[in-house]
């Protein structure tokens, strides 16, 4: 569905995106994860024909994003960071005009709008002026607009930013269901670790405009960090013995071991009769920390509190 070759975007001196090679197959759900300013949105904006690359190329849905913009636009859906519906418009009107923008006939656009209003639970607010809707309602309206022409490929730019936890969970559920029901290929950017972890089966980590890792959340964690098993013992001598047997490091009466498969190691170490066993599984933040020496989470926390 997507294939980029050395995709690059410079803004004056800044290399926002720096030689990205990305391939996404039909039916995948891919999350682009990275801190603010990493180049996720810029990548997305090039793939959706909003901005031309400085160099390199990208094919989306079989067409070149620079030379065949119209063909690309006809085949993709895009849900940007802002609100797609005009504030002085009514939700239903915007959905219908969005359908017309994709060349649908008035009757078909109306029917499709009704369908989406129903499935996204917008029935009560669809005839209200957009400016009176809540953040969560507007976001669902955005999703409906992005889906009006039932695209095979959907791009979402930070879809859940600014939503409260309940609306965020709601939105994620819609996206996952959309994929399950229609097999839509989905590419989304996010800086929420949990979102990438729970939704995507493929996470592309971007930092300073480059892809620094690309795999399933599970494999990223085991390859770059691994599980940590912490065994507690009653005495340091027992801990010493265990550390030797399991090739771990002793800290006081504790033994710490890093492993690809923490639970299995924990089960095996039960034979050494530890007083306690703890398996610490890594997060995607640990992966990012290992790869870059920086944490994604600090930034997320700052954003939430501001």
């Amino acid at each position: 569905m997507i294939e980029t070759r050395e995709l690059t975007k410079h803004f004056k001196e800044v290399r926002a995106v720096d030689g990205v090679n990305l391939r996404v197959d039909r039916g995948e759900l891919v999350a682009l994860l990275g801190p603010n300013g990493a180049g996720k949105s810029t990548t997305l904006r090039m793939l959706t024909t909003l901005i031309p690359p400085t160099s390199g190329s990208a094919e989306v849905a079989g067409f070149d994003v620079v030379r065949q913009q119209r063909e690309v636009r006809l085949r993709i859906g895009y849900i940007g960071q802002g609100n797609g519906a005009g504030h002085s418009q009514r939700g239903r009107d915007e959905l219908i005009s969005q359908g017309r923008a994709y060349g649908m006939r008035a009757r078909a656009a109306r029917a499709r709008a009704d369908e989406l209003i129903e499935s996204l639970g917008l029935g009560e607010v669809a005839n209200r002026t957009v400016s009176t809707l809540s953040g969560g309602q507007r976001r669902r309206l955005d999703i409906a607009m992005g889906l009006i022409h039932a695209p095979d490929l959907l791009f979402l730019d930070e879809p859940s930013t600014g939503l409260d936890p309940q609306n965020r969970a709601n939105l994620q559920e819609h996206i996952v269901r959309l994929r399950a029901e229609h097999g839509t290929t989905i590419v989304m950017t996010t800086h929420y670790l949990e979102e990438a972890d729970s939704m995507a089966e493929r996470v592309v980590i971007i930092d300073h405009g480059r892809i620094i890792a690309d795999d399933s959340p599970q494999r990223l964690k085991s390859a770059h960090v691994g599980d940590r098993v912490v065994l507690g013992f009653d005495s340091e001598s027992a801990a010493d013995d265990a550390a030797r047997a399991l090739d771990g490091a002793r800290h006081g009466a504790q033994v710490r071991i890093t492993s690809d498969d923490g639970p299995r190691l924990a089960a095996r170490s039960a034979a050494l009769a530890p007083a306690s066993i703890e398996v610490v599984r890594p997060t995607l933040d640990d992966v990012f920390l290992t790869l870059t020496g920086r944490s994604l989470r600090e930034e997320t926390l700052v954003e939430v509190s501001s």
């Binding site: 119209r70 636009r73 940007g80 802002g82 609100n83 797609g84 994709y102 060349g103």
Partner: peptide, 17 residues
Amino acid sequence: LFEMQTGSHERMLVTPL
């Protein structure tokens, strides 16, 4: 100008219009 700030102009730029 307002629609450029809210995102609805961007949404229309991605359509085949």
